[in-house]
């Protein structure tokens, strides 16, 4: 019995040491990597931005930041995270600001169907795994999921569980830089095709105004704390039921934001029905990006910065 306990203890310690070393090695490499957008943003330090764009995939793929910067002579970045909800968007903005970066204007795209959700999306959830030892990340995620205690304190558990995102392949990629990230040097991604792949059925895009919009207002508080002017926008969609109900809903939402001195611009109807500019119901193709940037985004940033 004594021998069994001794051997088991020895084996357990061996395993613990091996996984701890692997954990340190992987974390070190992942923190240096820039493949995922979270890694890229996390590594940005002491930047002075005239403006930044925040949101999910819609704002990630809708704006030509390079052209805006060139035309207006400003410095801007796209901080949007694909597949994210306002919860992760708040966290990534918080981390960005805590790392010494400064923003004058924040343009935040809200998706009407997501704005009231207070949970972490399945898609963006694993993207923060390498930062489980960062108190800001850990404390934030722990309020949504107790598993983060294990992710933080059990060596290598988080990389084993999410090994499709953070496995040996990503480790090799962090060390050798084999794959380029799917966003450009200013943080934007553009769909590589022009054909429309969504439905042509008309849809309601109304805000559910009964929620408390917790994360939107947390972003607003963060902006106030760091002296950033926040403007909320709703980017164009192609299959919008643009009726009195929609207009009324948007006016109510605008009034709610105005009460907190947050500006709101609804672009939802700007290219309604123009399928040649979209890749699906809510995302532009490259043609749409160019048109929206020139028609609306550049004038918006220009007016905000004066």
């Amino acid at each position: 019995m004594y021998k069994l306990i001794k051997t088991s203890t020895l084996f357990f310690i061996t395993i613990l040491i091996c996984f701890s070393l692997l954990d340190v090695l992987f974390t070190y490499s992942f923190k240096k990597g820039t493949f995922f957008k979270t890694q890229w943003i996390y590594n940005l330090k002491n930047k002075q931005l005239d403006y930044a764009v925040l949101g999910a995939s819609r704002s990630l793929t809708a704006i030509d930041i390079g052209e805006t910067n060139e035309v207006l002579g400003l410095v801007g970045l796209n901080l949007s995270l694909d597949g994210s909800l306002p919860t992760s968007q708040y966290l990534i903005l918080k981390l960005f600001l805590e790392h010494g970066n400064k923003i004058d204007q924040l343009i935040f795209n809200v998706n009407t169907w997501q704005i009231g959700i207070d949970s972490i999306s399945h898609f963006s959830y694993p993207r923060f795994m390498p930062y489980a030892h960062d108190d800001a990340v850990y404390d934030y995620f722990k309020t949504y999921d107790d598993n983060w205690i294990y992710y933080r304190y059990v060596p290598f558990y988080r990389y084993a569980k999410f090994n499709f995102d953070w496995g040996l392949g990503m480790y090799a990629n962090s060390v050798f830089g084999m794959f380029k990230p799917n966003f450009d040097s200013l943080g934007s991604f553009y769909y590589p095709f022009y054909d429309y792949r969504g439905t042509r059925e008309i849809d309601d895009y109304a805000f559910d105004l009964t929620g408390d919009f917790k994360n939107l207002f947390k972003i607003h508080d963060l902006c106030k704390q760091y002296g950033i002017k926040l403007t909320v926008i709703f980017l164009p969609v192609v299959n919008l039921r643009y009726d009195e109900g929609y207009k009324d809903n948007m006016q109510q939402f605008e009034a709610m934001l105005a009460a907190k001195q947050i500006g709101f611009i609804d672009y939802g109807n700007a290219y309604n029905g123009q399928f040649a500019l979209f890749t699906d119901e809510t995302h532009f193709n490259k043609k749409g990006v160019k048109q929206f940037t020139n028609d609306y985004f550049i004038p918006l940033v220009d007016s905000l910065s004066h």
Binding site: T7, L10, F11, T14, I15, C18, F19, L22, F156, Y159, A160, K161, F162, N163, F164, G167, L168
Partner: peptide
Amino acid sequence: KRALRFALYTFALIQIGLFGVFL
């Protein structure tokens, strides 16, 4: 050889950690 057994078992566990399906 206990050391060899330990090494191989550890190696096997690491493989499970790296390539197992936990989701």
